[in-house]
Amino acid sequence: MALLEVRDLHVHYGAVHALQGISLDVEEGQIVTLIGSNGAGKSTTLRAISGLVRPSSGSIKFAGRHLEGVKAHEIVRMGIAQSPEGRGVFANLTVDDNLEIGAYTRTDRAGVLSDKERVLDLFPRLRERLRQLSGTLSGGEQQMLAIARALLARPKLLLLDEPSLGLAPQIVQTIFAIIRDINKQGTTILLIEQNAHMALGAAHMGYVIEVGQIVLHDEARVLAASDEVRKAYLGVG
């Protein structure tokens, strides 16, 4: 049984039928990536998993428990953290406060402090800026903060929505190295990316979504080699 099982998921925004029967599995310990063009429904899939939008039908099961109808803040307590699209750092709070908010659900103070050290080792730039208002960080730094903050929830499953968006190539490399690192240390990851090349390089499994439907899924390296994906998402051929 996969850690996360999504079956025939439909989501509507009013008249917009954004997800039209999505099914996907995320196996424990893996990085799974969901790629697709703008408006395909990637973020909507994550929003449904996190409980921010209510599916009109279908099921989402995490570690054997149904998530439909569970409130967003309770889903975090069950072990799913999300670094949302557009980062969503709390600009009115300091970097340190943002990290603390990430650990809001936790009561093991010692564990939180040691995890904070760990993420600050991953992102040394944040350490220098702990007392700074996070609204004053650069875009790349805010992205690092959003990932670090999600890690502080110590999730079983980490949802990342376009962590490389708008970042310089070097920083993208760093972020992906960290994503692999986090995964090696035992966190399962569902990764959304427009940078299909990087995403398929890092992931174990890949899903391709087009206008609300999964059109392809396979091992990531198989997808990376397939003609369809190369043409449509890797800009080759």
Partner: peptide, 14 residues
């Protein structure tokens, strides 16, 4: 303070 800035994201923090 987090909720006042962005309630949706705050709910993603638990």
């Amino acid at each position: 303070r987090a909720v006042s800035y962005d309630a949706k994201t705050a709910s993603l923090m638990g």
